[in-house]
């Protein structure tokens, strides 16, 4: 059997190309990336994108339902009990929640990597102390620790960010320690140490770049959990304080109008679920793609 390659082959290759494309970029991942790209744009340009100021009240248009549910395009997602535009508040909330989660994840990663590296470099007693801290942190539900700290230390935005920064450091520390110990037993780290390099150089310039991909994946998996934690605290009225707004905060205040105006609560709730779902999916996908060793 011989087949003559003619231009009908191009149909196959186009099809194959599409199949190969979706093989490496599943549609779910593309949607997740698209949602996150939109969120990133909102974070960057929130004040320019939002149709209204998120604090602007319009008392004549209180509790307007969203468009298609009896409302109009003036307020696509309706308004809340003070006549504030839900879409504008949502955009600002996404911005605040994501920035908090990002800063906190950065703190957790810095803390985790530093302690993990300390344990790996010194071993012995320092390592035992770090491991004990990791166990202690993992033993207590973080929500409870966060609530207690807020009670004892009072509430402010910087404190909230730092507090969230203690979430998940223990997992990153555990991973960083394991990877650093494995890496420092490899030839390249030994060779650099034999050259007389300081621990800063060995860990900062050699081991860190070598294990960065795994660390980034575990940070990606930490990120949505921080969003959930912050929105939970804000929902309870103990996180971000008004007049500032965050996703959890919006759900918390919208809950009083669950009967008359459920959209106030449903819009930010959907935003939370979509965002955490997207980041988790991308995190899992990155892990499967780049780092099958992680769990």
């Amino acid at each position: 059997m011989t087949t003559i390659p003619d231009d009908s082959g191009s149909v196959f290759t186009a099809k194959n190309r599409a199949a190969a494309f979706f093989q490496s970029w599943p549609p779910g991942i593309l949607l997740a990336l698209a949602w996150l790209a939109m969120c990133a744009l909102l974070v960057a340009f929130a004040p320019h994108v939002a149709p209204y100021d998120y604090l602007a009240m319009d008392l004549r248009a209180r509790l307007t339902p969203p468009v298609f549910f009896g409302g109009d395009w003036a307020h696509p997602l309706g308004t809340d009990e003070l006549g504030r535009d839900v879409l504008s508040r949502l955009i600002t909330s996404v911005r605040i929640s994501l920035v908090i989660a990002f800063l906190s994840t950065l703190i957790a990663a810095t803390l985790g990597v530093s302690l993990g590296f300390l344990a790996a470099w010194f071993r012995g007693r320092v390592e035992q102390v770090v491991l004990m801290l990791i166990d202690a942190q993992a033993a207590m539900p973080f929500m409870i620790i966060a609530l207690a700290m807020l009670a004892f230390l009072g509430n402010s935005l910087p404190l909230l960010v730092i507090l969230m920064g203690f979430y998940g450091w223990e997992r990153i520390a555990r991973i960083a320690r394991g990877l650093a110990i494995a890496a420092s037993e490899q030839g390249y780290a030994t060779a650099v140490r034999d050259l007389g390099a300081t621990p800063w150089r060995i860990y900062g310039r050699h081991i860190l770049p070598n294990i960065a991909s795994t660390l980034i994946v575990s940070m990606t998996l930490n990120f949505p959990e921080v969003i959930l934690l912050e929105s939970g605290l804000s929902f309870l009225g103990l996180g971000v304080q008004p007049p500032m707004t965050s996703l959890g905060n919006m759900v918390g205040y919208g809950r009083d109008y669950i009967q008359s105006a459920p959209w106030i609560m449903l819009a930010p709730a959907a935003a939370i679920v979509l965002t955490t779902l997207s980041i988790s999916m991308i995190g899992d996908w990155l892990r499967d793609r780049f780092d099958p060793t992680l769990r």
Partner: peptide
């Protein structure tokens, strides 16, 4: 550290002794 300047080592496994990210 100062002695490192004057005594150096060549390793058996060159791939292992080099950082593959640099």
């Amino acid at each position: 550290r100062r002695q490192r300047r004057r005594m150096q080592m060549v390793y058996q496994d060159p791939l292992g002794a080099l950082d593959r990210r640099m």
